[in-house]
Design a protein around this nucleic acid. Structure first.
Lengths: 160, 160
DNA sequence: TGATCACACCGAACTAAGTTCGGCGAATAG
DNA sequence: CTATTCGCCGAACTTAGTTCGGTGTGATCA
């Protein structure tokens, strides 16, 4: 992997904050010519540092007032069951995220539903019928803070 | 809240998939004039449906090979302690997301670190010294699937 | 039922940005 | 000291963003 210099870091940080600013604005912010900036951004995409640009949507605006985290245990623990459940969960419209975990719980599923009743209905309709699920716990989310800007860890960060 | 019609839904879905497509492309996809499309997008932002545009970055490209979920219990359970831990965790560069939860665990923290050693160092350096933390469990993430496109739930979805 | 109003959409004109490319200058290696 | 490479720049060209007046449609009310 090619090195990212300071300019690349600033570009990446800026685009994480606002992916729709113009190339000229971005160039002005980082202090290089627009043409150079365009090339830098293109390279960042080509190198796979920037993987895409996405609009963020308000879940409440879409009528999803309640979020929850569902810890799910499935059995037996083999590839078919795990992949099967993962793609099943990922395909549900209520599901925001699916984590496959090491340790006690096998999955963690982040969902957004219209209401607490909706959460109950979701669990009953979508989860209870699945035979591979041997147990789950659900935790309603009171608050969710997301760090949108991710910088390279500085050398003083966690050990390599 | 004003109603979202089908055209708005398509616009929102498209911008979630690719926030950097041109307004003309977007207009062509949804089948309206560019000027109309521009106005629609502006209204979606004004109404708070679209909250922002963000570049997605490869964590591996930034040298963070390992992700984990940390379940954290803090005591005593009062506003100062909870807010204090939340903002502390949110301010750490390794932290991607902080969930404040109902139920047994009080927090769930999503972190990305360079390595398993980095995870260990993070827990020792950043968490162990905090007096309010009375316990935590960490789960390494094997896979993470994220649904980037979130549509309004159709009427057949979870009960309201 | 017919007239009026409101509203969203459209398209043209203008402004601004994206994109390409030739050349320049600095840094490096020979 | 010279040759080479590489990234950066800026001008020119292409394309897109933005504004605004006009138009058609659907709703409201007499």
């Amino acid at each position: 992997m090619m090195a990212m210099d300071d300019i690349d870091s600033v570009i990446v940080r800026e685009l994480q904050s606002n992916a729709r600013q113009t190339n000229r604005e971005l160039a002005a912010t980082v202090g290089i010519a627009p043409s150079t900036c365009l090339e830098r951004v293109r390279l960042l995409r080509d190198r796979g540092v920037i993987t895409g640009y996405h609009a963020d949507v308000s879940l409440t605006a879409l009528g999803r007032e309640v979020q929850a985290l569902l810890h799910v245990q499935v059995r037996p623990l083999n590839r078919e069951v795990i992949e099967g459940f993962k793609s099943y969960a990922a395909g549900l419209p209520e599901v925001l995220s699916v984590f496959v975990l090491a340790g006690g719980d096998d999955f963690l599923v982040h969902v957004a539903v219209p209401s607490v009743e909706g959460l109950h209905a979701f669990l009953m309709d979508r989860f209870s019928a699945r035979r591979e699920i041997v147990g789950f716990r659900s935790s309603v989310i009171y608050q969710h803070h997301r760090n949108r800007v991710i910088d390279p860890l500085d050398p003083a960060g966690s050990a390599r």
